[in-house]
Design a protein around this nucleic acid. Sequence first.
DNA 1: AGCACAATTGCGTCAAAGTGCAAATGTAGT
DNA 2: ACTACATTTGCACTTTGACGCAATTGTGCT
Lengths: 135, 135
Amino acid sequence: MSDSPACIPLEELLPTELFKALGDPNRVAILCDLCECRGGPKTVSELAAELPVDLSVVSRHLGVLKRARILDAERNGKSVQYTVRARDLVTILRALADAIDNCCPDPADRDQPASKPTPTERRHGPAEPSRTSQP
Amino acid sequence: MSDSPACIPLEELLPTELFKALGDPNRVAILCDLCECRGGPKTVSELAAELPVDLSVVSRHLGVLKRARILDAERNGKSVQYTVRARDLVTILRALADAIDNCCPDPADRDQPASKPTPTERRHGPAEPSRTSQP
DNA sequence: AGCACAATTGCGTCAAAGTGCAAATGTAGT
DNA sequence: ACTACATTTGCACTTTGACGCAATTGTGCT
C-alpha cells in the first residue's frame, strides 16, 4: 500500500453534473449555438428559436447548463443573456486530459510502471486547478 | 471566406453518448479505478469489488463505457480485461477544448455586448491541435 | 461430459429526467 | 396601475436509466 499512484485525484476532475449536463442533445445544441457566435450572448427566445422544443424546456436546459457552470446568465432589461463560460470549460477539459494523460502514459510503456522514458509532463497547458469557486 | 465562423462543427466533437457515459458516478468511479493502475487492465470482478453495486450492474456500466469508446474490452481466459482508451480520450478532450477555445476568443471581452474591439486577438492559447494523432 | 468460475443478459421495479401546457414572476413602457 | 413582452416555475405525463436477482452464456479444468 506504499505504492504511490502518481495520479492526481481524477474523481475531482470528473464532475458528474458537468457531464450529465453535456449528455443531452438539446443542451449540446444550445452550447453549440452559443459557441457559434464567438461567445456572444443570446437570449432564451433566440436559443429557443433554433430548437424544436418548447421555450420553457429551453429555459430549464439553460438552468441545468448554468448549474453545471457551463453557462453564465445575466439579465439585460426584459431578457436574459446567456453566455458560454468558455475559459472555465477549456480549463476543465484540458486539466482532465492532462490528468488522464498523466495517469495512463501509454499502454506500450506500462511494462515498467516505475520508469517513464518520456515523462509526459504538461507541455502545452498549465493545467491550473481551475478558478471556478464553489459558493 | 471573410465571414467564416472560424468554428469547426462543435457538435461533432460533443458526442452525447460519451458525456452521458461520464454522467454517472459509478461509471466515473470505474474510470478512475482503471486510470489509477496506469492504464493497466482490470477484470469485471476486480472493478466490482470496489463498488457497492452488484456485479451485473458493473458489467452493464462497463458495456456503456465500452460503447462510448471510453474503454476497451478483451477476453483473457475466463475473465474479461477492461482498459482505458486513454489516448483517444485525451485526444477528444483536447480537440473539444481547442474547438471551444477557437470559437470563443475571450469571455473577458463580453462586457461590451455589442462591440468587440479585438476579435482576432487571443491571449491565452493558440488552440494547438492535440499531440496524439488518432484515426 | 461434467463442473466451477467469470461475465453477460432478461426481467421487473423504482427513481430521475425530458417535455408541454398553463400559471406565475420579472421588467419596461404608457 | 395597467399592459406587453420575456423568462421561469408548478403540475402532470412519458421516457430513460440504474438497480438487484435469477438465468444464461462463455471458458478452462478434471
